[in-house]
């Protein structure tokens, strides 16, 4: 049964990489069931994350957000700050797609804080970039410029000309 769970997970990932997002969802849902049977919270967290990603490419952003929130909840329970940061970043982008810029900003700010804590300058740059866009969408141009300038400073520091 444990091996079956792993097989479903690998199958789901393969379907995802092939662009078969509905089949990826079906496989990851099976993987999730087995993870819960075993009380395997790490596997459950991975399944939620993979499901969230698949729903993004299916255009079902509300579903994606729900799975990313579960990913975030488990990341906090498992005290995994890197995954917590990744979840917040995913939620920020998902809420941008949903045009809920206030929620997007909330999650991107959370991502920013963790990225700074983890000395992740690339993550910090991404957060600032995202925040600049979200604040622009809200018409808060002072904050938008603030974060856009931070993004520029970090990009120069990292040598990312793009």
């Amino acid at each position: 049964r444990a091996a079956q769970g792993r097989a479903y997970g690998n199958l789901g990932n393969t379907h995802y990489l092939l662009g078969n997002f509905r089949k990826a969802v079906m496989s990851h849902e099976q993987r999730l069931l087995i993870a819960r049977e075993f009380g395997d919270r790490s596997a459950e967290r991975r399944a939620y994350s993979n499901l969230g990603n698949a729903f993004i490419f299916l255009g079902e952003f509300e579903m994606a957000a729900e799975y990313y929130k579960r990913t975030l909840q488990l990341a906090r329970q498992l005290k995994d700050r890197a995954v917590e940061a990744q979840s917040c970043y995913s939620l920020g982008n998902t809420y941008t797609l949903l045009q809920d810029y206030e929620k997007a900003i909330d999650y991107h700010l959370k991502h920013l804080v963790i990225a700074q804590e983890l000395n992740d300058r690339v993550g910090e740059g991404r957060a600032c970039w995202s925040l600049g866009n979200a604040y622009t969408a809200l018409g808060n141009h002072d904050q938008a410029v603030h974060f856009a300038e931070k993004h520029l400073d970090i990009s120069r520091e990292l040598g990312d000309r793009n």
């Binding site: 990932n13 991975r46 399944a47 994350s49 952003f61 982008n93 995202s130 866009n133």
Partner: peptide
């Protein structure tokens, strides 16, 4: 169409580009 317009937010597009290869492995 409306959703596609929002994919043109460059930071979101960059995230989605990364997402195409993002799988949590067993």
């Amino acid at each position: 169409v409306q959703r596609m317009n929002f994919i043109q937010v460059d930071s979101v597009q960059r995230w989605m580009d990364d997402l195409t290869l993002m799988t949590e492995c067993e």
